[in-house]
Design a protein around this nucleic acid. Structure first.
Lengths: 334, 334
DNA sequence: GGTAAGTTAGTGAACGGTCACTTGGCAGTC
DNA sequence: GACTGCCAAGTGACCGTTCACTAACTTACC
């Protein structure tokens, strides 16, 4: 289904002519509906209706320098963890009177800064939120604000608290209370800040609590690698808990355990990260870290709005992640 | 991190003045780099560099009626099944020389048509692809093409072949060959075309093959409802295969089986739909229907491009779904 | 009834590019 | 040397809106 046409759209002047007023009066009508007599208003209304007139936003933006639009930049690919993030950002923008557009920049990361500057100076947007880190010149004359979300790393796996691995410590502490003494961490790809951070907190926490690590398995986010890591555990490794860097890796670990005939959680506890809907129901349901992506999106957009209005950075509105304990974790065996 | 500024951006005329040429010569330089002498070109280049000039796309679009931008409309919420769809559309657009922007329309479906028309006549976009069905006037003078993806239903669960339930028949036929005779379908919410269609094909296929249906369980996409449906099966129901309307429901069914002590697939075969990454690895891995969302996105965008260029609709480029057989299905018991 | 103040409406410029047309310079040809 | 043709570059209008002024009409008040 498509609908188009080739004739020119009506302009404000044509409306004015039809209504028997000046173009400026129509403009006035469009902006704020007052300051004119009732019959005039009515004639304009009728003319607009008859011509099916709708304002040309491009022309308006040119004169105004107000487009009412913000841009969110995503890298190409399905790199963003959640659409909810966009929903949150969009909603927050809408409440502030803006419309958000999502621009996915094409492939090569090389030309990015230039493309972003082009966008910033294009006049199309009043502010730009980049969810991918880029290096920009500090001050540019006349450009619109660009907020680069600092927490988000090169491949968009974490942002701010999303990459906050403090939940990792919480998980380990609880498992330690359950009697677990020896752990394995199945880490994500280290090109992601979040993966590096989770790994670091894992090591630090074990160290702090005097627990043992069998090691860190590098998976590169591949669930098969996670499975293999479990299959490769020596019979006497003593590992009773596996900490996955995300739910997919945890699922791989559970598969590895299953293939070895280990029961989860009776023989082995497994945890993930992301609160994947499927892992919440597939037996055994997975203990994981839930991230409120929508709240996160709102938060990030508020930063942009603050920059736009030259206000100070808004205060954080509390934690955005929490641990959900489910069936995949339990007391250590013996 | 933010960067802004308040001074005006340089214009083409300032560049011209600095380079000692006319504004038109600069414009010429910007558009196609030829038709001027080397020293002139070089002076302009230097001036642009010195002023850090970048063209104002709004002004250009106003004169040109060419913005090089297409819009894809999504409803608010995380209703879209996959970001890959966007990736595909974006890539296809990019290859055709367009930039795609995603506009999520706010909540209320009521004002939609008007908002879409506003967008169409705003001059901001050369074409609009709506992934949600809206009723529009057939012909509008001078507006840009609007393609409403017909297959996508009100809540964005299916589009074109995504809603194509013919794979459903393929699954049932294979299970019948495995010796299964009595089935249960856990259906999705019927507000979704795809759910209705899958249900219909389920019933038709059983009928055609002379198989029995224990019934259709309405889940409203809730995995808990899927679990309950399995728990509610009488001991002697004779059901040996459960067809889930998507992977999440299949996961719920597997949980139900697990809670009852039924083994999958030894006692019960289960299938899903969507090829969820987690269900591919969690044991038992799930037999499912994979949808190539990215290809789908490309296809939909090609329709828009065709409308844009007044070309005939492009031919479909083959099937976009296929069944993946995994561990959750097997021969019927006995 | 005259004048000040307030309200309603109109006029022309401006936003920053591109388009259509014109001008000027130089080489080639007879 | 005059004419033709081509190339490089310039001039002014125009895209559709809003802004800053200005003009005309109304009302209020003494």
């Amino acid at each position: 289904m498509s609908s188009a046409g080739s004739k020119k759209r009506p302009t404000i002047r044509e409306v004015a002519q039809l209504a028997g007023v000046s173009h400026q009066t129509v403009s006035r009508y469009l902006k704020l509906d007052h300051g004119m007599k009732e019959p005039t208003r009515e004639r304009i209304r009728a003319a607009i209706e008859q011509l099916d007139y709708r304002p040309n936003l491009v022309a308006r933006a040119m004169r105004n320098r107000r487009t009412g639009r913000l841009a969110i930049l995503l890298p190409a690919g399905n790199a963003i963890s959640s659409l909810e993030l966009l929903t949150g950002a969009t909603t927050a923008a809408y409440e502030a009177g803006y419309i958000v557009e999502v621009v996915t920049l094409g492939a090569p990361a090389g030309g990015w800064p230039e493309r972003v500057l082009e966008l910033a100076d294009s006049g199309l947007f009043e502010g730009i939120l980049s969810l991918t880190p880029i290096a920009l010149p500090d001050r540019r004359p006349g450009g619109v604000p660009i907020v680069v979300s600092p927490g988000y790393d090169d491949h968009m796996r974490g942002i701010g608290e999303l990459a906050d691995a403090s939940r990792m410590a919480e998980i380990i502490e609880r498992l330690a209370a359950y009697g677990h003494r020896r752990f394995l961490h199945v880490a994500g790809g280290y090109e992601h800040t979040s993966a590096r951070r989770r790994r670091q907190v894992y090591l630090d926490t074990l160290d702090r609590l005097g627990l043992e690590s069998h090691g860190v398995a590098d998976s590169g986010w591949s669930p098969e690698a996670a499975r293999d890591a479990v299959l490769a555990l020596p019979e006497d490794s003593g590992v009773t808990a596996i900490i996955g860097a995300n739910d997919l890796l945890a699922a791989g670990a559970i598969r590895g355990a299953w293939e070895r005939g280990l029961r989860v959680p009776a023989d082995l506890s497994v945890t993930g990260w992301d609160n994947n809907a499927l892992a919440a129901i597939y037996p055994p349901s997975l203990t994981t870290v839930a991230v409120e992506h929508e709240k996160l999106g709102r938060r990030v957009l508020r930063h942009l709005l603050a920059a736009l209005r030259d206000e100070p950075e808004p205060a954080d509105d509390g934690p955005i992640t929490h641990v959900i304990w489910r069936e995949s974790t339990g007391p250590a065996p013996e």
